[in-house]
Design a protein around this nucleic acid. Structure first.
Lengths: 231, 231
DNA sequence: GCGTTCCTTCGACGCCCGTCGAAGCGTCCG
DNA sequence: CGGACGCTTCGACGGGCGTCGAAGGAACGC
């Protein structure tokens, strides 16, 4: 009788009817792309378990994936998925007094602005730094991104030395999932990020990957890159 | 690890993750109140099975019940539930609405069938209206349905203003159970329906949800949408 | 009253599915 | 090259849940 229905809501609902898969989708509501292990750790399940869940979610059209190297990046496929999750949250029990919009929270704004992406900087601040370095001739940003001579001197001036003997490319383009634009990664990006943290330009927000730019950091960015970062 | 989530989407999603319960909700999407046995017969399950499902749905807040004598009437609890079902249907593996040609809409038989679905119009007339609005560029009907600029102007021309400050989306796709195709819902659908009733385009048939298109309404649909509705 | 209808409770059956660890493969780094 | 890491496949285990029929209570019509 019911195979004739034509639209099987149940198939879609079943994808979100599991606590682990729901945790994945809630985490992905921040708009970023997460790797499979990040999601697994966040939900507290084994990587193999995460794999099977992610396969289901991708096959069901709720998540979109992109493979980069050994990483599997996942994000919500569509705005319709966001609306579905919000519709579910609206009916979930014990929802907070104020039906907060899941899309806009202060934490997310902080994340969009500056955050750690593995070992380098991401977010709008990272994009601004990358743009400024290109503009000042420190970075050659093309199909084959590389550090210019001025760029190497600029790093040395800051006391940053790239580890030698590594096969890791000094400069790589990393795609920012919030801004959908590439920014500085690679050995130089990592070294710059490390320096920014040790020099107190940036501080981590709690245990998250969000970062804030300190007063020292704002002054340094202005002095070394001519970059004005609003407080 | 996942206890900090706060909202358990999974609990809500699980309610719709079963084919029988989903069939119940799809049937109830017509806005009427069904009895338990009607739903059981419709879904092809035993009455005892239906009882347990209905208990879950009522306890979960998706359905509201009303007992009259030996009958148990059930309806969707809330507009949020309608929106949740619509969100699920929007992601279900069903082909999106290919707008029919104006001529095909005009040729369609039994076009006069119209009824209320909550606060908006349903039935073949609603489908024809939706198709005509898409065809005339008033409605953008994609994965993310929305009113176009022309559509907003068209509504204003009719004297229809959408309530501001509401979190309700202006345009949503509502699945018509009998036609199995989505049609215009959301704030715009409700406002248009209200206007059609107050302007005398449509009249209710007795106390039911059925509607008839008046002569005034036929003229209005022809003038404003180029839609020919046979008497 | 009596039969019919609507709904419920209960117990039992069966299977779907979420979980893990072990093993393996490809990628990246030193 | 060799180690580390991210991800996948596979098999096995266990529990949750959807299903039914039988039996019974409650309401309605005759």
């Amino acid at each position: 009788m019911e195979q004739d229905v034509g639209v099987d809501l149940a198939a879609v609902a079943r994808l979100l009817a599991d606590g682990t898969r729901a945790a994945f989708c809630l985490a992905l509501l921040d708009g970023r792309a997460w790797t499979a292990v990040e999601l697994a750790r966040h939900a507290g399940v084994a990587p193999s378990t995460a794999t099977s869940h992610l396969n289901l979610l991708v096959a069901g059209g709720l998540l979109a994936e992109e493979r980069h190297g050994r990483h599997r990046y996942l994000r919500l496929a569509d705005r319709r998925v966001v609306e579905l999750i919000e519709s579910l949250a609206a009916l979930a029990p014990q929802q907070p007094p104020r039906p907060r919009s899941l899309a806009a929270s202060g934490r997310q704004r902080a994340l969009a602005r500056a955050r750690l992406c593995y070992d380098h900087l991401a977010g709008s601040v990272a994009l601004a730094v990358t743009d400024a370095m290109v503009e000042r001739g420190l970075l050659a940003w093309g199909p084959q991104p590389a550090l210019t001579g001025e760029g190497a001197a600029w790093l040395a001036e800051l006391g940053i030395t790239l580890p030698g003997g590594s096969r890791r490319p000094p400069v790589r383009a990393c795609l920012d999932w919030t801004e959908r634009r590439p920014h500085l990664a690679g050995a130089a990006g990592a070294a710059l990020c490390t320096h920014a943290l040790t020099a107190g330009w940036l501080t981590r927000v709690g245990t998250t990957r969000a970062l804030t730019v300190t007063t020292t950091g704002r002054r340094a960015l202005r002095d070394h890159l001519g970059l004005i970062v609003p407080a």
